[in-house]
């Protein structure tokens, strides 16, 4: 969402400003240019930083034991991919995130429905959720290890817990934010309760639920990273931890890059879903 908004500003912003100047042809040209210049200008500093990093590594200013050079990291990444280590680690981590996300997401949404659709439900669910939300969930890791051991369960459980709150809070707020006038309309149309929920409440809450979905995916990866740091015998976190033992900073960096790439990928997926599910809104924004 934020990127299209930025694009729209970048495209539309200069246009009205340029319009009054269009009478002087000399000035109308530079008004267009900044947009193009900006694109490569934004690459200057990252590329420069990368170059400085590479030079510092090559000259020995930055020892390999602290941070590997970009070229080493690239070679290591290629090696980890070709020998199957990285794909296998990604598969394990993705499975943990997927399982935790599904479990926590479904729980969060079901609880939000229970709390959102009735006062009794709200009274039963919401105080508990608000209290649990105040717990620092990374602090729960010791308990989770005691309860679930050190296998897959505590990792999945931590992801599930982290995911459930953003989805609960946003879906609950979305349900309560549905226009009361539409609920009234539903009464005059003689819609039953099930039809009211299906046609009015759930679609009305969807935009807010999707906001929660994006938040929860971000937090899911975060929870996974923390869970995998604690103890793991497979997955990206294990790969990173194992590399630490042998001072393989190149492998650590590859692991971190993969984490962020996966995070960006899942975020893009939700954005795609948003665009498809909320076309009725885009019709309005497009006019």
């Amino acid at each position: 969402m934020s990127i299209p908004a930025l694009d729209a500003q970048g495209v539309r912003g200069p246009a009205p400003a340029a319009a009054p100047r269009a009478t002087t042809p000399r000035r109308s040209r530079p008004a267009h240019a900044p947009g193009r210049v900006k694109v490569w200008q934004r690459w200057v500093s990252p590329l420069a930083a990368l170059a400085v990093w590479q030079i510092a590594s090559t000259t020995g200013l930055l020892p390999q034991s602290l941070l590997a050079s970009p070229s080493t990291i690239a070679v290591t990444a290629a090696g980890l991919i070709s020998d199957g280590t990285l794909p296998a680690a990604i598969a394990v981590s993705l499975q943990r995130v997927a399982a935790g996300f599904l479990l926590g997401g479904i729980t969060g949404i079901l609880l939000a429905l229970a709390a959102g659709l009735s006062r009794a439900g709200e009274n039963a669910v919401d105080p508990l959720m608000q209290m649990l939300r105040a717990l620092p969930f990374f602090g729960l890791i010791p308990l989770f290890i005691l309860w679930f051991g050190i296998g897959e369960t505590p990792k999945v459980a931590l992801v599930a817990l982290a995911v459930s709150f953003p989805l609960y809070l946003n879906t609950f707020a979305g349900i309560r934010g549905v226009d009361g006038k539409l609920a009234e309309l539903a009464r005059t149309l003689k819609l039953g309760r099930a039809a009211l929920v299906r046609h009015i409440v759930l679609p009305g809450a969807l935009p807010q639920t999707l906001v929660g979905l994006r938040q929860s995916l971000g937090v899911a990866w975060l929870a996974l990273i923390v869970a995998e740091q604690v103890n793991a015998d497979a997955g990206l976190g294990f790969m990173i931890n194992d590399a630490r033992e042998f001072l393989r900073t190149d492998v650590i960096v590859v692991g971190l890059l993969v984490y962020s790439a996966l995070g960006l990928l899942t975020d893009a997926l939700v954005r795609l879903m948003e665009r498809r599910a909320l076309t009725w809104r885009r019709g309005f924004l497009g006019e």
Partner: peptide
């Protein structure tokens, strides 16, 4: 007073609702 069309339903679905 305000038409109260359900914004996420196309016009025909609004009329067929219920």
């Amino acid at each position: 007073q305000e038409p109260r069309l359900v914004p996420w339903k196309r016009v025909d679905a609004n009329i067929a609702l219920g």
